[in-house]
Structures are given as structure tokens and as C-alpha cells.
């Protein structure tokens, strides 16, 4: 087992090295953004919020999260997020305890009602965090979903 984890580690290190090399080879910052600063690849909620520039998001009761309190099957959890904040342009959904917490980002065009419904995967009991962008400010709300059977991993 030790040898196996060692192998895994070295592969990961190799991949990271390759990533670095790629970074050096592409001076184009916008392109590098895609690899290094992609919030979808971030591993923690704090990182995600930081990358989105939403660290200081204010909590708001005008964001409604509709999700089951107990989800029997974490592979398919219906979640609805509605924002009643005027001028909402973005709804970001974060599943706190997933390996990559940022689940989805919805950007609304003109005339769209800032409310979405989708189905998410949840590995285990987790907080669903909704971040709403209205104007230049971010607002947030969260709700816990208890998962009895995980949706990630086989």
C-alpha cells in the first residue's frame, strides 16, 4: 500500500510540474488564468470565494434555497435557488464538501428571472451555499442537506 501511495504522489508531482512548465511556456495571462485560477478547480470554499472575488459576501435572507433536508440519493439532489435581490446578475452554487466545491455559476441576461432549478451531486452531508451577485456586491445564504447515500465515487 505504501508503494502505491508513493507512486500516486509522484504522478501528482509530475503533473504539477508539467502544469508549471505549461505556465512558463504560455506568457498569455488570460490563458494561464484558465489553468491556475479556474475557480471550478479550487478545492475549498474559501478558495472559490477568493477567486470569484466574493470573500466578503454579506449574508442575506433574500436568497431562498430550496433543497431537501435529507437527500436519500446524493447523486441527484434537486436544488432551487431564488434571489429576491434587485439587480441580480449571477447565482453561484457551491456544494461545500465536494472535492471541487464550486458547482455552477449562472449568469442572467436581460429579462431573466433570477431563479434556477437544477440537480446536483453531493458526496456527503454538506452545506449548499448560494452566492448572488447584484451590482458589484455579493450576497450569500446557505442550507444544509443531509445525504444518506453519497453521489461521488463508485
Amino acid at each position: 500500500m505504501k508503494r502505491r501511495s508513493f507512486l500516486k504522489g509522484s504522478i501528482a508531482a509530475g503533473a504539477a510540474g508539467a502544469g508549471l512548465a505549461a505556465g512558463i511556456l504560455t506568457p498569455n495571462m488570460a490563458f494561464a488564468d484558465d489553468v491556475a485560477d479556474n475557480p471550478f478547480k479550487a478545492k475549498s470554499v474559501d478558495e472559490v470565494l477568493k477567486m470569484l472575488g466574493a470573500s466578503g459576501a454579506e449574508s442575506s435572507d433574500k436568497i431562498k434555497i430550496k433543497a431537501p433536508e435529507i437527500a436519500e440519493n446524493g447523486a441527484v439532489v434537486p436544488v432551487g435557488i431564488t434571489s429576491e435581490i434587485p439587480g441580480t446578475t449571477e447565482i453561484i452554487s457551491i456544494t461545500a464538501k465536494n472535492p471541487t466545491p464550486l458547482a455552477a455559476r449562472y449568469t442572467f441576461g436581460e429579462g431573466a428571472v433570477p431563479a434556477i432549478k437544477s440537480r446536483f451531486k453531493m458526496g456527503k452531508t454538506t452545506d449548499v451555499i448560494a452566492v448572488v451577485k447584484a451590482g458589484d456586491k455579493y450576497y450569500t445564504a446557505k442550507k444544509e442537506v443531509k445525504v444518506t447515500k453519497g453521489g461521488c465515487g463508485g
Partner: peptide, 25 residues
């Protein structure tokens, strides 16, 4: 022809994804 919703998704969205929303039209 005018975008009303753009969704950026990750692997945290369920298999055979479902999406629902509305807009003024």
C-alpha cells in the same frame, strides 16, 4: 438570439442534468 442565461457547470452537476428557469418574453 439574445442570451438570457449562461450556466458554467462543473462535475458537481448530476448525470443527465436538468435545468429550469424563466425569463420575461
Amino acid at each position: 438570439g439574445k442570451p438570457v442565461l449562461t450556466a458554467d457547470w462543473s462535475g458537481s452537476i448530476s448525470k443527465n442534468p436538468f435545468l429550469s428557469f424563466s425569463y420575461a418574453g
